[in-house]
Design a protein around this nucleic acid. Structure first.
Lengths: 332, 332
DNA sequence: CGAATGAATTGGAGCGCTCCAATAGCATGC
DNA sequence: GCATGCTATTGGAGCGCTCCAATTCATTCG
């Protein structure tokens, strides 16, 4: 299992190791003749550059770490798709890690990234403490996605919660709904903003009197509990959930109770995950602009590589509403 | 952003670089005094060993690559959990890559792992061609999970399809079902075995006459199409789907048609993913023994590191049935 | 008391590459 | 014909570590 090195290729092609190195760096100052001879020999010997050595020597890894909070949440699969694609098209290799919803594990994974000398790290909805973020931000560029931190050198990319809430409320109001309940994400990341902007949008629509909020969490279980509470009391005409998982829980309870969606109650989720797309649920949901968020994030990393001491940027991008069969005009 | 090296720590502690190296390798032949002094200085300077340099010098990365086919399929999130945990407890770091259901991308990712000198690679349901597998297997230990390949040095870990089929058929038969349809995975990986063992189990149960198979695919869409075909003709009393996604598609159509689960039709899925656990679906499903499969896989890699020219092993492990609300006795 | 043993420490070569300064080779122009 | 400016190529130092053989120093023993 011993593998050929540049030296071997150089000897076979009758050139110096430096020239082989230049060929593999796609340097323009190699003659066509040498280039093709070197490539031919490399191919013949089955040579592949040793990235470790390359990275050590060049002090640049061309790698971005992507830290995800929970790969069981289908939302993060979408996040991963968008960010990985963007990193690759910007010429980076993506390294993934799975935080499993524990701040401690996330810190560990972040440290591993740093140990591997990644050029930058994208943290999706991280739970890591500010102090860890601060100290790591001195070593490598960090971008927080969907978590608003206020630290001197940590850039932040968010989708615009305010617009999300407006899209939801406008959609429901234009269908004729007035009695709208929001099941919130409790103390989860971003839950407070989602709830506050819902309330603000309702007030703006002149529906301050008929709005309600039920405390929850970002889980299916929480959706079920909130729904059980609702069916025991006064049912609204529309339910706006903190995310799709919550909406799935609500739908399960409504179905069991013989309450049909959307004829009896309209249902809206958030994140437009695979769950929302399930035909069984066919859920109207707010889609985060992940592709744009990815583009901005990679860009912020590039800019911080060039200028490490830059102040922190906070970028917000507008989401969109995807309407499906779970919303309709209320029964008259 | 310049970081301290071993040299810096050595100077600060008044010892040689070699000694610092020994300390960070947990060598037993370092005196307690030196060890604690070195560690204290390292801590003070914020030193972290450079893994790249370490790996280059030691020619061992202690890293395993895990190649997943499709992170949008919740099954792979479960796979990842099990394998990552196992790799870590065996002292490896796990590197992830996302094949996105394309053989070409998978080959690319595999090559990247090899470039990074991983000690071994675990391929979950890979679509990579045998020729690529063969050539890569000469460079690093490879384990295929849930894909049966017959190559001289590629080990294989499978769950036992035969037992899976028996569990399903026995469960349905013991509830009183005779008229059972299988919606298969078409040309997808493992679909043929799943179908064949279903048929064999039905024959063993003396139900050869009443068994039916409908051609499908491993997608929700395919489930919907098969279900539409079924509701137009003679509905069976139980439907056994190639995986949970297919079952979700079936459930959507049945619900729309006012056919209730399980009182009108029992439904069974495969893989026991998040979908099966959704309260809305509460699907009886076959669970693959992922934890055991992970343990065996890592073990096979370790054994092949010790003995690269060993013949290929094929290991099969029994799955289990998880019963939920989607199955019940048929209407009499 | 000197040789032998063993534990703790060190120096140096080397892992496979990049990068820079130096050099070679070769056509220009005056 | 020779300095000039190119482009193509090369040698060597160095990235931060590991690993091995060699060294130091204190102990032990005949």
């Amino acid at each position: 299992m011993t593998r050929p090195t540049m030296e071997d290729v150089a000897a076979a092609a009758g050139v110096s190791r430096s020239l082989v190195s230049l060929v593999f760096q796609d340097s323009p100052k190699v003659s066509e003749a040498s280039r093709s001879r070197v490539l031919a020999e490399a191919e013949r010997l089955g040579y592949r550059p040793n990235v470790l050595a390359r990275q050590l020597a060049s002090n640049r890894t061309r790698t971005i770490g992507i830290l995800l909070d929970d790969l069981h949440n289908p939302y993060f699969a979408d996040v991963l798709d968008a960010f990985e694609a963007e990193a690759e098209s910007a010429g980076y290799r993506a390294l993934l890690a799975n935080g499993r919803r524990e701040g401690e594990r996330e810190s560990e994974a972040l440290r591993t990234f740093i140990d591997h000398r990644v050029d930058g790290v994208i943290l999706a909805s991280p739970r890591i403490s500010d102090s860890v973020l601060t100290s790591m931000s001195k070593i490598a560029p960090l971008v927080c996605v969907e978590r608003r931190v206020d630290l001197p050198r940590v850039d932040v990319v968010m989708h615009d919660e305010r617009i999300g809430a407006q899209l939801v409320v406008d959609h429901l109001v234009s269908l004729g709904h007035r009695d709208i309940v929001h099941i919130d994400g409790g103390t989860g990341a971003g839950a407070a903003a989602r709830r506050d902007w819902f309330m603000q949008s309702m007030r703006d629509a002149g529906l301050a009197a008929s709005m309600r909020v039920i405390g929850g969490e970002f889980t299916e279980q929480a959706g079920r509990e909130a729904a059980e509470q609702l069916v025991r009391g006064a049912l609204p005409t529309a339910i706006y959930c903190a995310n799709d998982a919550v909406a799935a829980g609500v739908a399960a309870v409504l179905q069991r109770e013989g309450i049909s969606i959307p004829s009896d109650v309209s249902l809206i989720g958030y994140d437009d995950t695979m769950l929302a797309k399930l035909d069984l649920l066919s859920l109207t949901s707010v889609r985060q602009p992940l592709a744009e968020m990815a583009k901005v994030s990679v860009d912020l990393i590039n800019r911080r590589i060039d200028k490490p001491r830059r102040g922190a940027d906070i970028v917000e991008i507008a989401p969109a509403l995807v309407t499906r069969r779970s919303t309709a005009a209320p029964r008259t």
